[in-house]
Design a protein around this nucleic acid. Structure first.
Lengths: 215, 215
DNA sequence: TCCCATCCATAACACCGTTATGATCGGACC
DNA sequence: GGTCCGATCATAACGGTGTTATGGATGGGA
């Protein structure tokens, strides 16, 4: 509770912000390379070249550091989905968005698990408030749906509900993929993920099409 | 590694099996009531009225105890899905199976998270081999699909792939529901879960129907 | 120049899973 | 019946964890 040390001229602010940035960077690296349980305050401090107290001055403790990691994870997920080019085909955009979302999760699976799982990192349980920061990405999906409806491709409906259906299917696949449960079927990407997304989208279209073949 | 102490006349076998049973029962209760991070060998032993060594003689350590909990969780999930009555309407059966599956997850959310999340319980990471025991439930879903195809209601397709699509959508909803992410939309059960399942099933039907209204 | 808030290094505390040791007890065998 | 043996678990110690208390160093504001 050191009173939110932002960069407003507090102490040696430049070097301090640098320590904070490096702590987050090293922590993310440790989680990505060695898995969530490998992250500890002591090992993190040693790898960053500081002491455990730095974690407390900058984040108030390990849960605070994890919160910051999750927030940055959502920020990157947001950026990744936002980077898909918007074409004249809203359905293609939605497919590309799904591919980008999945790629992001596969690139950093342990962080995705902490973001979305009821996963605990170490012993610190994240609460709903700690994850709500991730809903920017959901707003993006909603906008994809709104574009599709405005273009007359998707049926008029509640964009939030439709976006949530899309998210549910995609998140379900990603989680089963990361936990390897999806390995019960062969070639899951082509036999589960894209057929499922196609089933959903064609049900939402004004004039349903047979599932496309081009990936 | 005490050589699998089954009930074949080993020591005071009756009392021993009883201790093992109570350890599992108390551990499940602690996870259900206080969440996964609240489970520790010491508190579990104290609550069970024994010492931490009992965990090692019966399960080889905390990871082994968690494995046993996960196996029992899958067993109960299997029983829950198996208990849905089989009617002459395969689609109704699939809907009832989904409702039973979701109800099971909601009744013991932390255990579901350990079973399916890349969630860690304490610091012990479960491996794929520890969770493979849960695939009995998947076989059941596959059989539902096979019945639907045999009855001429569902299109002929790979039952495993179709079952995996169904599972993906359902698991995605359950996870988003347990983590409360689904709260971004109102009335998620009626605006997300059932519409999504209906979209999927109608895409799989020989003669698609409009989504049903009866819940 | 002085001062003071900030930052972090050190050490201690309580807790964790795990291991080593040994007492205890029930069943098997002679 | 006496004896032994092996499984079971109570106790204590070890290295790890997050966290807290303490104090020294450092750099900017008055």
């Amino acid at each position: 509770m050191a009173g939110s040390p932002d960069q407003t001229g507090a102490g040696r602010s430049a070097s301090s912000a640098e320590v904070r940035r490096r702590l987050l960077e090293v922590a993310a690296h440790m989680v990505r390379e060695q898995g969530a349980p490998a992250l500890s305050a002591r090992k993190l401090a040693a790898a960053t070249g500081t002491s455990t107290m730095a974690v407390y001055t900058h984040f108030g403790g390990m849960p605070g550091l994890v919160r910051a990691m999750v927030a940055e994870g959502f920020s990157r997920l947001f950026a990744r989905v936002a980077a898909v080019p918007i074409t004249e085909d809203p359905l293609l955009d939605l497919r590309n968005a799904a591919a980008a979302y999945r790629a992001h999760a596969r690139a950093d699976p342990d962080l995705y698990a902490v973001m979305f799982g009821s996963a605990t990192l170490g012993d610190y349980r994240l609460h709903y408030e700690d994850r709500i920061v991730g809903l920017d990405a959901f707003v993006q999906i909603k906008q994809f749906m709104e574009r599709g409806m405005a273009a007359g491709v998707l049926q008029e409906a509640d964009p939030a509900a439709v976006a949530a259906q899309w998210w549910t299917a995609l998140h379900g696949f990603v989680m089963l993929e990361l936990t390897r449960f999806i390995d019960v079927v062969d070639d899951a990407e082509d036999t589960v993920l894209w057929p499922l997304m196609d089933h959903l989208l064609s049900s939402l279209m004004v004039t349903p099409e047979p599932p496309r073949k081009d990936v």
